[in-house]
């Protein structure tokens, strides 16, 4: 009798605990979903708004109804305008061209410098490394104005040089490469040297293949940075022939203030490419940038 009672109350307690656990879990999902909704809302909204006419957007704004968000009539007119009249393809090509040139140079120049730090002992090594670390503590925005003056002296304003060259060397990338290269066992390099491999061979046959992930991180960082960069191109690439996606969008925003659906379409198109690239490769990005912050 007593034991039966006990086990019954134990079962009740267990049920209560389980119920609490499920409740907490349900709440957890609910909050996650809510945050996701807030996060995604501006983009989803842009997506739907880009597929309707400006008249419709305006007409259904008030009072709030289903059609405030969802189109009555789907139209791709705004995409046609963005792709043909507003010059999105040209701007996208310009941006991709800059990125395509910058990535190999940046990867090579920053990674060989990192290679020097991890493989060799030389006079002034620590001082030089400190130099690179300090260089990337200087926020890029702070040097924008004097950098513009200098680039202007070179005669690079409104040329692609100004977009490509200043962004190549980066203390941050060097730092990331160095962290990765440091994990390659030195015995491997030594034995390759004994077998008669040149330093060039050691670098291209051992270091690069072993450190592919960090090259992906570096390339992705450049891609995201350049594709989304706004302030610098605004100063040095205003000419229509070389202007980048962000500048094109800013021009649309400033000059065609009434073309709402076109702005939304431009936003959707310009977000699509970095997101499509970022999502499958996010692991590399996150690991790359957080490695230093967490482990020091």
């Amino acid at each position: 009798m007593k034991t039966a009672n006990l086990s019954a109350s134990a079962a009740r307690l267990h049920r209560k605990a389980m119920r609490k656990k499920y409740l907490v879990r349900a709440l957890h999902y609910f909050v996650m979903l809510l945050v996701a909704l807030i996060t995604m809302f501006p983009l989803l909204w842009s997506f739907f708004a880009s597929m309707r006419s400006d008249v419709e957007l305006y007409k259904y704004a008030l009072p709030f109804s289903w059609h405030t968000i969802f189109p009555v009539e789907y139209t791709f007119e705004s995409y046609r305008v963005v792709l043909t009249e507003l010059g999105f393809p040209r701007a996208a090509f310009n941006t991709l061209l800059v990125i395509a040139i910058q990535i190999p140079f940046a990867c090579l120049i920053n990674s060989i410098a990192a290679f020097a730090f991890t493989t060799f002992d030389f006079k002034g090594k620590n001082a030089l490394f400190a130099f690179f670390v300090v260089s990337f503590m200087i926020p890029g925005e702070a040097v924008t104005m004097p950098l513009y003056q200098m680039v202007n002296k070179f005669g690079w304003v409104d040329t692609r040089w100004a977009l490509i060259v200043p962004g190549i060397a980066s203390g941050l990338q060097l730092f990331l490469f160095r962290q990765f290269f440091a994990d390659v066992p030195s015995a491997l390099i030594e034995s390759a040297r004994i077998d008669g491999a040149s330093w060039t061979q050691v670098f291209f046959k051992i270091m690069v293949p072993m450190c592919v992930p960090i090259y992906i991180t570096a390339a992705l960082m450049i891609f995201m940075g350049e594709w989304n960069s706004y302030m610098w191109p605004l100063l040095v690439a205003r000419r229509e022939k070389i202007r980048t996606v962000q500048i094109m969008l800013a021009v649309v925003k400033m000059e065609h203030i009434t073309l709402w659906s076109c702005m939304y379409a431009g936003a959707v198109l310009s977000v699509l490419i970095p997101v499509a690239l970022f999502l499958p490769l996010q692991k590399y990005y996150v690991e790359g940038i957080t490695a230093g912050a967490v482990k020091g």
Binding site: V35, A36, T39, P42, W45, A250, K253, W260, V286
Partner: peptide, 23 residues
Amino acid sequence: FRTIYYIPFAVSITVAVMVWSLM
């Protein structure tokens, strides 16, 4: 959800400003 939360980071400041100013 993690991936969804990252997405705005891939959006440029220009687009963020444009979309929010319209909203």
